[in-house]
Design a protein around this nucleic acid. Sequence first.
DNA 1: TCGTCAACTTGACGGCGTCAACCTAGAAGC
DNA 2: GCTTCTAGGTTGACGCCGTCAAGTTGACGA
Lengths: 231, 231
Amino acid sequence: MATRRIRARRGDGALLRDEILCAAEQLLVETGTEDALTLRAVAGRAGVSTPSVYLHFADKEALVEAVCLRVWDELGALFAEAAASCDDPFLALGRCGRAYARFALDHPVQYRVLMMRPSTGEDAAAACLRHMVGAVAACVETGVLRGEPEKLALALWSAVHGCVSLFIAQPSFPWPDDREALIDTVVRAAGFGGAMYSRLPRDLPPSAELAEELDEFGARVTTRTRARAKR
Amino acid sequence: MATRRIRARRGDGALLRDEILCAAEQLLVETGTEDALTLRAVAGRAGVSTPSVYLHFADKEALVEAVCLRVWDELGALFAEAAASCDDPFLALGRCGRAYARFALDHPVQYRVLMMRPSTGEDAAAACLRHMVGAVAACVETGVLRGEPEKLALALWSAVHGCVSLFIAQPSFPWPDDREALIDTVVRAAGFGGAMYSRLPRDLPPSAELAEELDEFGARVTTRTRARAKR
DNA sequence: TCGTCAACTTGACGGCGTCAACCTAGAAGC
DNA sequence: GCTTCTAGGTTGACGCCGTCAAGTTGACGA
């Protein structure tokens, strides 16, 4: 902790950058909050004086953002894995949504800092949306989703981001026991919603009538699915 | 600003509480960020010394929460208005969703502070969910939605919260021009998704097959709606 | 008129982000 | 081997922050 770092050799000044990032990440994960991420604490853990941080980061904000961005590569890998895990693009989309949620809940502090604050995380958000658009586009291509992929992706992204961000930001809220199941519900509902919204007219039939149609549709798909399963 | 406040009379000490809240709310709205809400600035605007704030608020966090909670009554009124504006519960649910989004975007700072931070806003979140459950329950009663109202409400809430929280937290993101339209998409998709998710089997048919079913369903509802419109 | 106590103020403390000025070790030139 | 120079840091200070213990003030009841 308080052990002074041996000064880097000439030309290796950038080594400190990585050590600072590691120290900051440790602090963030250990304490579970970015409030513990003071420049003094980070520098102390890196075995370096406080202003040395400014040799590699413009200000505290830049350090925090850089730390949180470190985990963002994982998201790309998780998405790729989820997308490749299954031939059917609609099922793959669902897995992507679940993978996204897992990623966010695995890195709650980083997710909150980058996604729930103004003036940070624009790049991270762009990456999220880009991945979403990719998974959605495959569904549009096969016709199960209809509409502009951007718009659809934003709607799906909103749903899953909303769910996990509530979990993260309101940890003491009496959520249902099985969060996994709730995420599943949200992802499925968002997917179905995306499939429906551009197929239904703007002027909806009255609820009772719509309910009947929905019942009928649901029953037909269910029986056909069961029949196929028996084959 | 720097004009000293005339000391309240005996028994009227609580008057200061309201004046502090007003000063803080002004600062919050004027600057657009809670970072400007320092105790010194608030006390100064209220014409009072800094530690006087502690006569009415346990700490800064309590002050900030109290300030942000001030606008939350509006949400109840907006929900009630949206729910009463239309007989059909499913349409009313959509209007509730849009009202929720409007509320959040009208009070971005308050919404962010209470909903996107840990250890604050539990009551606010509970209020949001409660209103949602009310609007959803009416839909479940008429059969257009199916399933547990709590679960459904959480899914719908997630979707609209996700959308507005992204808008609020990422103001510099290149969002589509018409945010209103995007909110509309999200609300509609979430509503349809909620209607579908418990009607469809867990094992979905392959995408291509599902796409056909969806097309057929959409076409039937559309033609029937048009026919009804001509009548 | 006077004591009392509610309604504040004073002054200080430690911690924070940030910055200008200073040091210092090790590679380069002679 | 000695000097010089500069990359790679450190020192010490500034102003702002939230918070608190102790002091002050002035309206009201007796």
